[in-house]
Simulated scan of single mutants.
Amino acid sequence: MMTRRAFSASKDGTVLHWDVDSGKAEKYQWPNDEILRSHGAKNPEGRTTKHSRNVLALAVSTDGRYLASGGLDRHVHLWDTRTREHIQAFPGHKGPVSCLTFRKGSSELFSGSYDRSIKIWNVEDRAYMNTLFGYQSEVLTIDCLWQERVLAVGRDRSMQLFKVHDESRLIFRSSTSSLECCCFIDNSEFVSGSDDGNIELWGIQKKKPVYIVKNAHTLSTDVDNGELKDNGRNYNGHIASSWVSSVCVCRGSDLAASGAGNGSVRLWAVEGAGKGIRPLHDLPLTGFVNSLAFAKSGKFLLAGVGQEPRLGRWGHNSAARNGVAIQRLKLL
Rank of each mutant, 00 (worst) to 15 (best):
M2V: 14
R4G: 01
K11I: 08
D12G: 10
V15D: 08
W18V: 11
D21E: 06
D21G: 04
A25S: 15
E26S: 10
W30P: 00
E34N: 13
E34R: 15
I35C: 00
H39K: 15
E45D: 09
R47V: 13
R74Q: 02
H77Q: 07
L78F: 11
L78D: 12
R82D: 03
T83V: 01
R84H: 05
E85S: 02
I87N: 01
Q88S: 03
Q88H: 14
A89S: 15
P96T: 01
V97P: 04
S106D: 08
L109G: 07
R116K: 12
R116T: 07
I118H: 02
E124H: 07
L132S: 03
Y135C: 08
T141C: 13
Q147R: 03
L151D: 06
G154N: 00
R155P: 07
D156S: 00
D156Q: 08
Q160W: 00
F162M: 05
K163R: 13
V164L: 01
D166V: 14
D166Y: 12
D166N: 15
I171R: 15
S174V: 02
S175H: 12
L179S: 14
C182Q: 09
C183L: 04
N187K: 15
V191P: 02
G193H: 03
G193P: 01
D196M: 00
I199Q: 05
E200W: 09
I204S: 06
Q205E: 00
K208G: 01
Y211R: 10
K214I: 03
T218A: 13
S220A: 11
G226N: 13
N234H: 12
N234I: 08
I239Y: 03
S245V: 10
S245W: 15
C250H: 10
L255M: 01
A256D: 03
G259A: 08
V265M: 01
G272P: 04
L280K: 12
S291C: 00
A293W: 04
A293E: 04
K296W: 09
K296T: 06
L301E: 04
A303N: 05
G304T: 00
L311K: 08
N317D: 13
G323Y: 02
V324C: 08
V324I: 13
I326D: 02
I326C: 04
L332P: 09
